[in-house]
């Protein structure tokens, strides 16, 4: 029983992280029809922005040493700027390009960011101890929960609630939803296309920065490929959730988190190193059962 509860909390906290990644990817996809393979690298940028740029093996905290009240907005700002810059430099000239071209362009952005980081920070992983105060554990009866897991779950819920409020209640949010429903029609009705897309990149970047901080305080290890597996799980979550549906992205994120955690817990030990392979296989199986994803976005049904 305790074991099960423990696994459930693990799954929830991992799932929250994937849900945040999936939201960042799904938001851009719903408006721009862009599969952003560089989302993971936004996360990596947020993590590297904490330290002093140098090739040294030992990382020295710069922004990372600030008070969280300053730290969180600064990192968010940096990632948002990077996200907006990629939009301006690469994706804006490709607005009318077919979807596969945009996806390839985002792969190019990802490759440039990763190798740019290697150029500035070197290729070797670095240890970073961000927020050591969060590494403790809470005991509820016989159950022991890492503080960080609680923080991750709470932060995710707060961000999701905030995003939902923004999308449902504010004028800009409604414009974004209109653009996601039918971009051309929304523009005819006075929604400014580039503004909406810019906001989508901004929010996607802000979500990525939250993932950077949460993920880095869990692992404590900085490497230039840090965001790649996160983005991969996030992309997969978007697909199984139903492409174009934000609720689907969140559901997909939690589902992937659960699958990975349960495999980690219940696979026989000698198969555990193949966990990710099993997880992806499972995901492909879900897609066979529901090719359009769990929650179908009506705007994405092909009209003839």
């Amino acid at each position: 029983m305790i074991n099960l509860a423990q696994n459930l909390i693990d799954a929830l906290s991992l799932g929250s992280l994937y849900a945040l990644v999936a939201l960042g990817i799904g938001l851009l996809f719903s408006i721009l029809r862009l599969i952003n393979l560089a989302h993971g690298d936004f996360i990596t940028v947020g993590a590297f922005a904490l330290i002093v740029p140098s090739m040294e093996v030992t990382a020295q905290l710069a922004i990372g040493a600030l008070n969280p009240v300053l730290l969180i907005p600064s990192i968010a700002l940096i990632v948002v700027i990077v996200a907006l810059m990629t939009d301006w430099a690469v994706f804006r000239p490709l607005r009318r390009a077919p979807q596969p071209s945009m996806m390839i362009a985002s792969f190019a952005v990802s490759y440039i960011i990763q190798n740019g980081l290697i150029m500035i920070y070197g290729a070797r992983p670095k240890n970073v101890n961000l927020w050591p105060a969060l590494t403790g554990q809470l005991s509820i009866g016989p159950l022991r929960i890492a503080t960080l897991q609680i923080v991750t779950i709470v932060v995710t819920l707060v961000l999701m609630a905030g995003l939902a409020l923004f999308l449902k209640r504010t004028s800009y949010g409604i414009q974004m939803r209109a653009a996601a429903e039918d971009f051309r029609m929304a523009r005819y009705l006075g929604v400014r296309g580039n503004l909406v897309i810019g906001m989508a990149f901004g929010i996607s970047g802000a979500l990525a920065s939250a993932v950077s901080l949460l993920f880095l305080s869990q692992t404590g290890s900085l490497e230039t490929g840090l965001g790649v597996p996160l983005a991969l799980f996030g992309l997969v979550a978007v697909v199984i959730g139903g492409m174009g549906s934000l609720v689907g992205a969140v559901v997909g994120g939690f589902l992937v988190g659960f699958i990975v955690t349960l495999l980690q817990a219940y696979l026989p030990p000698d198969l555990r190193s193949f966990r990710d392979a099993f997880a992806f296989t499972f995901v492909i199986a879900i897609l066979l059962w529901r090719p359009a994803g769990l929650i179908r976005a009506k705007a994405f049904d092909q009209r003839v």
Binding site: L235, V239, A277, I284
Partner: peptide, 17 residues
């Protein structure tokens, strides 16, 4: 059987597998 974009992501997952 998936649509084109979803199939692309699935091939990405295959590479990771």
């Amino acid at each position: 059987r998936l649509n084109g974009l979803a199939a692309s992501i699935a091939t990405f997952a295959f590479l990771a597998i």
